[in-house]
Simulated scan of single mutants.
Amino acid sequence: MVTYTKRDIVRTVADKMDVPLNQAEPWVESVIESLRDKMMAADPTCRIELRNFGVFEVKETKAKPKARNPKTNEVIYVPAHRKTHFKPSKKLKKFLKKPLSEVKGDD
């Protein structure tokens, strides 16, 4: 599995925009920070829609009064909280559904 970091994204943006890394880094940082701030300010839910990429959502979960700790079998209470969810765009979803043999170029 390949893991990409923020630095990798900065490199990609710098290459696409034909600018030095130190100029592209604040742009990427600003976008990530803006998304994070909007999600953290959700009261209690929010939806961030990025066309041709996908939708980020902050959703509420229900409280679970009779959840079970699988390690100890102890019954515990899990309070209601929020969680994030990502739904890919049609274009991205269509690409991800392609058989791996098509994507990798095997045959």
Score class of each variant (00 low, 15 high):
3 T>P: 00
4 Y>F: 09
4 Y>R: 06
5 T>Y: 03
7 R>C: 06
8 D>M: 11
9 I>N: 07
9 I>L: 10
9 I>E: 10
11 R>P: 11
12 T>K: 11
13 V>I: 15
14 A>Q: 15
16 K>L: 14
18 D>K: 09
18 D>V: 14
19 V>W: 06
19 V>I: 15
20 P>D: 08
21 L>T: 06
22 N>G: 07
23 Q>F: 07
24 A>I: 10
25 E>W: 01
25 E>S: 11
27 W>E: 12
31 V>A: 12
33 E>Y: 04
33 E>A: 11
34 S>K: 05
36 R>M: 15
37 D>C: 12
38 K>E: 15
41 A>I: 05
41 A>K: 15
42 A>G: 10
42 A>R: 10
43 D>F: 04
44 P>A: 08
46 C>P: 01
46 C>L: 07
47 R>N: 10
47 R>W: 00
48 I>M: 05
49 E>V: 00
49 E>L: 00
51 R>V: 05
52 N>A: 09
52 N>Y: 06
53 F>E: 11
57 E>H: 08
58 V>G: 04
60 E>K: 05
61 T>P: 00
62 K>W: 01
62 K>F: 08
65 P>V: 09
66 K>Q: 13
67 A>M: 12
68 R>P: 14
69 N>W: 05
69 N>E: 14
70 P>S: 05
70 P>E: 08
71 K>W: 04
71 K>H: 11
71 K>I: 07
71 K>N: 08
72 T>L: 00
74 E>H: 06
75 V>C: 03
76 I>L: 10
80 A>P: 08
82 R>L: 10
82 R>Q: 14
83 K>Q: 12
84 T>C: 04
84 T>H: 08
87 K>Y: 06
88 P>G: 01
89 S>K: 02
92 L>V: 12
92 L>K: 09
96 L>W: 07
97 K>P: 01
97 K>I: 10
100 L>C: 06
105 G>H: 04
105 G>Q: 07
105 G>W: 07
